[in-house]
Amino acid sequence: MIEAVMLWNEPNNKSHWDPEIDPDWSRFAEMAILAGKAIAAVDPSLPRVLGGISPIDPSFIVNMAGRGVLDHVDVVAVHGFPLDWNLWRIHDWPQKLDEIRAVTDRPLWVSEVGVSSFGAEEVQVFGVERTAALLAGRAPRIHWYSLYDLPRAWPATTRHKEAEGSSYYRHFDMGLLREDGTPKLALETFARHTPTLGLCQWFHFEDHRLDEAVRWMKRLGVTYLRTGLSWADSFRPNALAWFDRQMDALAEFDVTVTFCFTPEHLGIAPHHTSPPRDPRIFADFCAAMVERYAHHRATPPVACPAE
């Protein structure tokens, strides 16, 4: 069921990792190395992906290399949203990839890229077309974020919430489908670029959209998906039953599963962005999930031919 595992999500973004507790990312590096080793001990052929970085910052990759993290991952990944949050143009995508390739020889994936329909649905249509043109052939995995809009009743995972102004509210309009499941203009455009483009879709605990999402992905011709299994959720009642249901529903796709979110009771601070007090517990969680779900895996491509 798992084609690859990703260690954390956006570790250089303070919405996902607390830089006040870990300003030099030494704690993150220790945790990632332990997790990488634990995964390899269970399945040495399973590709390990360093959590997709946002912003795209070569110095972060250099830091991870210097701390030994890249010795325990097979792929590095980036996230980019130039029409919504980043301070660079969408046409700069090839340059941004080259900046990372200049500091590592690890294969490079684009594990989140997207455009919101916040201003106009036509902007999202342009974003899908231009992104596909700029990235196709330059990375073996391009995960479009996302299939569904984030429901308005759910909070977006970001540090400053509504204080971010329109930047916060753009989180809710990243889907190709509206919250009620009706298609936006960009859905048809996206379908013309599958299976080159895959999806990134986060499913919340016991997410009511799971089965319908699977039906949509099959209709759209999607073959690969990135999602997550939350370490924090693993402590909820019936967590394994939900994880089993999620992974079983996604069994027909090549799934990159992201392990992240610190349980409050295990963090240095009681927050999902906190480094854990004992990083070995995260490594144990990663190993257990790989043991449980990776046995039906087909080995994916991790490299992309140079153009």
Rank of each mutant, 00 (worst) to 15 (best):
A4G: 11
W8Y: 12
D57W: 11
A239M: 10
K218C: 04
K161H: 07
H72R: 08
R170T: 00
L177D: 00
Y169F: 15
V255M: 07
L70P: 04
T258K: 01
H271K: 09
P82G: 04
T262S: 08
P107C: 07
A4S: 15
S15V: 09
W85R: 04
S230F: 03
P276F: 13
A40W: 01
Q124K: 01
F261W: 14
A120F: 03
M31K: 11
S54Y: 14
V128L: 06
F28P: 06
P107V: 09
R152V: 11
E291S: 14
V302I: 15
A65Y: 01
P279A: 04
D98G: 12
F261T: 08
A29I: 10
M247A: 01
P94T: 03
N86P: 03
S54W: 15
R130F: 08
P263D: 05
T196D: 08
A163E: 10
L229N: 06
E10R: 05
T104V: 12
H296R: 14
R192G: 03
R178D: 00
K96E: 13
V113A: 03
K14H: 10
P151E: 06
L266F: 06
P11W: 14
M217Q: 05
M6H: 02
H91S: 15
L225E: 05
G66E: 11
T157N: 08
V73A: 07
